[in-house]
Structure formats: structure tokens, C-alpha cells
Design a protein around this nucleic acid. Structure first.
Lengths: 149, 149
DNA sequence: AAATAAATGAAAAAAACTATCAAAAAGACC
DNA sequence: GGTCTTTTTGATAGTTTTTTTCATTTATTT
């Protein structure tokens, strides 16, 4: 069951939790669908919307991002790269699907994705040793990309 | 070769890069040595210093934290837990040493450490597939701690 | 001890985000 | 369709964290 990023799916999820499907929420999702693989800040989303003649308020962008990241909706995922602002991307995590990791080049600051997970052993180990039930994880690798070595 | 958090080691590293050993940098390091396992924000460090009668400027705390985290010094490590501020801890990462991971309870927001690494296979795989040379990593697990399940 | 280069403190400024509240829009009901 | 109720939005002000500025102080070199 791959995650579905259509407006229909959004509408469904919103209605399941008593939220309304608004133009603003729709176009925020659109920005992510139209810019796959990018890690956008609230400001980035706001700018891209302006460029596509959908000039919605910045506060609304923040509110939409928060909602789309919430446990209820879960269409987006928030990531911290330590560059002073939160960034967001489509949430491709699902029970049976593997998660991807981020590799950050410490020289050119490019962010590359790595789509294998391989953390199942570690998560099982954590549960055995600490009784901590892992539901999600975020992994960042720092190092030198192909071009910067 | 375990990392050494003495003032002598700090002095050495600073001098290697033309930095000066100041009282302020010394006491910032001291706070971390005296509070092992804690993830302190700049504000936290500033407060703890005030409490030990070393009331240095907050801007200086920020500057010391940045320097101690830099590649040149590398005595501290910056972590983002997504709670609105950057946090810092002693950097225990070293070539042959295993890194620890953070587990964050999504219910009570407690942060627990897990001291096994187990990412060598994944890092080797990354190098084979992407020619990305990993030098460091940061792993965060989200889930429910023992008390919150 | 004097010179010089770097670091500090205090305050202002910047940046990212959040709260407020009146006006507008969405969905429900007839 | 139109009306009602509740949610959402936009604009702005406010908060919080972090950075910059610049005159003064401190560390190291000579």
C-alpha cells in the first residue's frame, strides 16, 4: 500500500479527522508533488506558490505544513538539516515500505537520498535491550559526495 | 584513541588552528564535562554557567559552541531534536569508536541513548552504491519508551 | 612591558516561527 | 439554490532563537 499523494487522498484524510479541504492545503501539497526529491522550507513553499500565482499567506503555509505532517494526515515529513529552518518532503514511509536516508555532503552541502533502509536489526535490538518501541526513524549521514572527495 | 575532554586537549586543538584558549571556552567545555549525557541548548549552558558564577555573555556561548563543534575542534556535537533550538553534547564519535543513537519518545518527549552503532554495513553499502564517503552520522529513532507504551 | 591580533559583552538586528482576531470560506442542512 | 455553524485564512504583531556589530578587553608574541 504505497502512499497516495492525490488531492482525493488528501480530501479523504482531512475529512476522516474533521478537517476541511481548502484551496491553500491543496496547493501546498501540489508544490511537493511538483518538486519531488526537494527538501523545501516554509519560505521555499511560499515562494514557489507565489511563482505559480497562488500567493497564500506565510502563516497559512506554516499551518498547512504542520497539519500535513501531523499523525492524522501524515502526507509530509519534517526534517532538520541544521541549517536554521525546518524542511519538508513527501512522506514515503509506510509499514512495509523501506524508508530512505539522507546523505549530506559536508563540503558542498548537497543532500543526496539513499533508498535502502537496513535498520530492522537495529530496531529489533533496541526493543530487546530497552523496551523502546520504534515507530519511525531519521538517519543522516555526513561525509563527502562523489564530486567533493 | 578515545576523545579527550581535558582543558589541555582543548588548548592543543585551539592552538593548532590559531585560536586562543580563553576562560569562556574553558568553562563552556566544563559545563559539558560536568553534565554528561545531557543535551544542552545554548540557553541551558548560559544558565548553568550563571549558576556556577561564570556569567559570560550569551553571544559568547553561541560562539564557543559553534567553535567547539567545528571540524577544527570537534569536541562537541550539534543535534536537532526539533524542539525549536539546537542542542549540544560531547562528541564521542571517533574512527574506531562506536557512536550512540538517540531515541525520542513521541509521547513524553524523553530522549534516551542507545550506545550500539551497527551502521557499518549500511555505510559500506552507501559507498559501494553512491561513492559517498561517510564520515559521521546522526540517527534518531522515534517511538514509545518503556513507560509510555 | 608593548604591540597586535583575536575574542568578548551588550545591544541591536535578523530569521524563523507562533498567536491573535476579524473576515472569509467550507461543509452541513434544509 | 440559500442559510447556518464551524473552521480556516490573512495580515500583522509578537516571540524565540540565533547572528551581527562594534567598542573594549584579553591572550599571545616579541
Amino acid at each position: 500500500m504505497a502512499t497516495d499523494f492525490t488531492v482525493e487522498a488528501l480530501k479523504q484524510k482531512l475529512q476522516n479527522s474533521q478537517y476541511k479541504l481548502t484551496y491553500q492545503r491543496k496547493v501546498v501539497l501540489e508544490v511537493f508533488v511538483n518538486n519531488p526529491g526537494e527538501h523545501l522550507s516554509a519560505e521555499d513553499v511560499h515562494d514557489k506558490l507565489k511563482a505559480m500565482d497562488a500567493d497564500i499567506g506565510l502563516a497559512t503555509v506554516y499551518r498547512a505544513l504542520e497539519l500535513l505532517c501531523s499523525k492524522d494526515i501524515g502526507i509530509l515529513q519534517k526534517i532538520e538539516f541544521g541549517d536554521g529552518c525546518s524542511r519538508y518532503e513527501l512522506n514515503v514511509t509506510k509499514e512495509n515500505t523501506h524508508q530512505h536516508h539522507h546523505m549530506i555532503c559536508t563540503n558542498c552541502h548537497k543532500v543526496i537520498e539513499f533508498s535502502e533502509d537496513m535498520l530492522d536489526d537495529l530496531e529489533n535490538d533496541i526493543f530487546k535491550k530497552c523496551q523502546f518501541k520504534v515507530t519511525d526513524h531519521q538517519v543522516k549521514f555526513y561525509g563527502l559526495c562523489k564530486d567533493c572527495q
